[in-house]
Design a protein around this nucleic acid. Structure first.
Lengths: 196, 196
DNA sequence: TCGTTCAGGTGACAATGTCATCTGAACAGG
DNA sequence: CCTGTTCAGATGACATTGTCACCTGAACGA
């Protein structure tokens, strides 16, 4: 029925899911190899059959999340809405992760650690997500300064999200919502590119 | 010669400095209460005479760093250069921390944890730093949308810094330096405000 | 002078990451 | 069908860490 390879793959998946769920519910401190194992139905030593160490497990969680983000951006891009709309939705995908899964969001944008193989995978996934963003911005901005404005948009949206995630953007102090900030950011750059 | 209160204050200072130095040299994992104590010339239990727990110690380190940042921005502001120059230097103060002391930078912008007293101090220090930024931006932008643009500038600079700190802004991929990004960000907002 | 306070030292404990070792079942080859 | 191998998982053990209870001695106030 279930081959050994299938069972092992299922366990690996369960471990990654368990780590993500623990991260969401209790923050990084709650992600214990023992807890991850328990939630995945195995014991504390089992994860070492699938990941070299804890860091590599978490880095793989981040890599998968970055991959999903890249897929989302690509999907938004495929909808072929107006370039401005597409950009807004792509940035919204990023910020939704920050709002719904703040600890995962932090993990995604933290320098990956652990086994070189896992690190490499995370780096590649991150670059893929950024490349997708690049094509989105490419439809909005002329070729000469795509990279500059794409980096600026990405950094801006990330900064807004990160500040909000960490509670540094209380609306009653700044009189702005994160949505308004992103809108302002995008429009400001649109104005700039039209003026060139 | 040295009163008991003086000695205690000196130890407290030594603990905070030791924590900062360990954070710089070895990252968060290197900040061990035992290591902090050793570097401060005391043993592992001594920190508990000055901080309720480890989180509160680190939160206090962050609070002091935010306070220093606020002082720097205020000092820049007092130089009375051109508003644009002042803004650039204020943002540079922020980004310099990120480049020179990346782990401390991360600590500063992470939601504070630990004892409510320490958390309160960190929140207040963070708000003070932001208020200083607000006055800097106020000299550049008209009153109606100061907060919005101040938040945008701060979030943008923070996003750029955070991405760079975590290695997500390799210049050969994006063809941009962080300085160029900040310049673009500032000029883009200047254009916008002039058009209103 | 004497009792108090309190910074600091010390032993102990539970939790955790990690490893060496063991076990049993799924596999390959005859 | 039998047999040896491989490998996922279990288990025991160890060092490290945060944290606490308890102890000590010296600086203090009266």
């Amino acid at each position: 029925m279930v081959s050994r390879a299938e069972s092992a793959a299922a366990t690996r998946r369960a471990l990654l899911d368990a780590a993500g769920e623990l991260l969401d519910s209790g923050g990084p401190d709650a992600v214990t190899l023992r807890a991850v194992g328990a939630r995945a139905g195995v014991t504390r030593g089992a994860p070492y059959r699938h990941f070299p160490d804890k860091d590599s497990l978490l880095t793989t969680v981040a890599a998968e999340a970055l991959d999903r983000l890249a897929d989302q951006v690509r999907a938004v891009c495929a909808e072929r809405a107006s370039p401005a709309d597409t950009l807004h939705r792509a940035l919204a995908a990023l910020m939704t992760i920050g709002r719904c899964r703040p600890h995962l969001y932090r993990l995604m944008f933290t320098a990956p650690t652990g086994d070189p193989v896992a690190v490499e995978a995370a780096v590649r996934a991150g670059e893929r997500a950024m490349d997708e963003f690049l094509t989105v911005v490419g439809d909005l901005v002329g070729a000469p300064h795509v990279r500059r404005f794409a980096a600026l948009l990405l950094a801006g949206a990330h900064g807004i999200t990160d500040l909000e995630v960490n509670g540094h953007l209380s609306p009653d102090k700044w009189h702005v919502t994160t949505e308004e900030l992103v809108s302002t950011l995008v429009s400001v750059i649109e104005v700039r590119t039209r003026n060139e």
